[in-house]
Simulated assay, not measured.
Amino acid sequence: MNTRQRFVIAAAFVALSAVVSLLAAPELPDQLVTNWGPGGEPNGTMGQTAALALVPGLGAVLLGLFALVPRIDPLRENIASFRRYYDWFVVVFAAYLAVLHTGIVAFNLGYAFDMTLFVLAGVAGLFYYLSILLENAERNWFVGIRTPWTMSSDEVWRRTHALGARLFKLTAVLAVVGLAFGEYAVLFLVVPALSTAVVTVVYSYYLYEQLDGGDPASDV
């Protein structure tokens, strides 16, 4: 399967979101619930037209940006080396948006379920595949853990992403475990995700200072 075929799959998920909107519109109220609190309680609404157009429109725009990134990155040859993983992330992300949109529509059609837990489960799956992408990403300007230190050294990039991949997998697992804790489930995602962000930034700086006395010349 090549890049074009993978992007066709991603586009199909975007189109599916639009189809869901068109089919459900006649049965939906003028105002749709689009926000939920940690305990799954609705706490925000949006007009029907805007709510039904948001995810399909956003998906289409992001799909275009995802297609553009490998063409404009100054290190595009590095993206080419992990292009398969990048493309599948685009597919997974488009699928996540389609599932999220379908869940929002289903909730507003009267189906009873905890939307917050539904979203968290989807984000856990997205984070898990993100960890796979990070494991395989080479240095570039758009995809991965981009700090001044990872961008200055291939070795710092590689080792930081190896750690980041493990931490994102752990975050995904903890998010799934958190689904059993009701209104506290959000913490099982947010706390590990923020911790991962802080740890990887600090770790990349530490590595940069330790390797070759912080001289990037031998790695770039």
Results as ranks from 00 to 15, higher is better:
residue 9 I to Y: 14
residue 9 I to T: 03
residue 9 I to N: 01
residue 10 A to Y: 03
residue 11 A to L: 10
residue 11 A to Q: 01
residue 13 F to R: 00
residue 13 F to D: 04
residue 14 V to T: 11
residue 14 V to S: 06
residue 15 A to I: 03
residue 15 A to E: 11
residue 16 L to W: 03
residue 16 L to A: 14
residue 16 L to G: 05
residue 17 S to K: 02
residue 19 V to R: 09
residue 21 S to Y: 11
residue 23 L to A: 14
residue 23 L to F: 10
residue 23 L to Y: 08
residue 24 A to R: 05
residue 24 A to T: 02
residue 25 A to G: 14
residue 26 P to L: 01
residue 26 P to H: 05
residue 26 P to G: 01
residue 27 E to F: 13
residue 27 E to W: 12
residue 27 E to P: 03
residue 28 L to F: 07
residue 28 L to N: 05
residue 29 P to E: 01
residue 29 P to T: 03
residue 29 P to S: 02
residue 30 D to Y: 00
residue 30 D to K: 02
residue 30 D to N: 10
residue 30 D to S: 01
residue 31 Q to D: 01
residue 31 Q to E: 02
residue 32 L to M: 06
residue 34 T to V: 13
residue 35 N to K: 13
residue 35 N to I: 05
residue 36 W to M: 00
residue 37 G to S: 13
residue 37 G to N: 14
residue 37 G to E: 13
residue 39 G to V: 04
residue 39 G to K: 10
residue 40 G to Y: 04
residue 40 G to M: 01
residue 42 P to A: 08
residue 43 N to R: 05
residue 43 N to M: 10
residue 45 T to C: 04
residue 46 M to C: 11
residue 48 Q to A: 15
residue 52 L to I: 10
residue 54 L to T: 15
residue 55 V to I: 15
residue 55 V to Q: 15
residue 56 P to E: 08
residue 56 P to V: 09
residue 58 L to G: 13
residue 59 G to R: 13
residue 59 G to M: 08
residue 61 V to S: 12
residue 62 L to G: 10
residue 62 L to W: 09
residue 63 L to Q: 09
residue 64 G to R: 08
residue 66 F to H: 11
residue 67 A to D: 06
residue 68 L to Q: 08
residue 68 L to W: 04
residue 69 V to S: 05
residue 71 R to K: 12
residue 71 R to G: 05
residue 71 R to A: 01
residue 71 R to E: 10
residue 72 I to H: 04
residue 74 P to F: 12
residue 74 P to Q: 11
residue 75 L to D: 15
residue 75 L to K: 15
residue 78 N to M: 02
residue 78 N to H: 11
residue 79 I to T: 09
residue 81 S to T: 14
residue 83 R to Y: 10
residue 85 Y to I: 00
residue 86 Y to Q: 07
residue 86 Y to P: 04
residue 87 D to A: 00
residue 88 W to K: 00
residue 89 F to R: 00
residue 89 F to C: 06
residue 89 F to G: 12
residue 90 V to N: 09
residue 91 V to I: 07
residue 93 F to G: 08
residue 94 A to Q: 01
residue 94 A to K: 06
residue 96 Y to G: 10
residue 97 L to W: 06
residue 97 L to D: 10
residue 98 A to I: 12
residue 100 L to Q: 11
residue 101 H to W: 09
residue 101 H to P: 09
residue 101 H to I: 09
residue 102 T to D: 09
residue 103 G to F: 00
residue 104 I to H: 11
residue 104 I to E: 12
residue 104 I to T: 15
residue 104 I to N: 14
residue 104 I to D: 07
residue 104 I to R: 13
residue 105 V to F: 14
residue 108 N to L: 08
residue 109 L to N: 14
residue 109 L to Q: 11
residue 111 Y to V: 14
residue 112 A to Y: 14
residue 112 A to Q: 15
residue 112 A to H: 15
residue 114 D to M: 04
residue 115 M to A: 07
residue 115 M to P: 07
residue 115 M to T: 10
residue 116 T to Y: 03
residue 117 L to Y: 03
residue 117 L to E: 05
residue 118 F to D: 02
residue 118 F to W: 03
residue 119 V to Y: 08
residue 119 V to P: 01
residue 119 V to I: 03
residue 120 L to N: 01
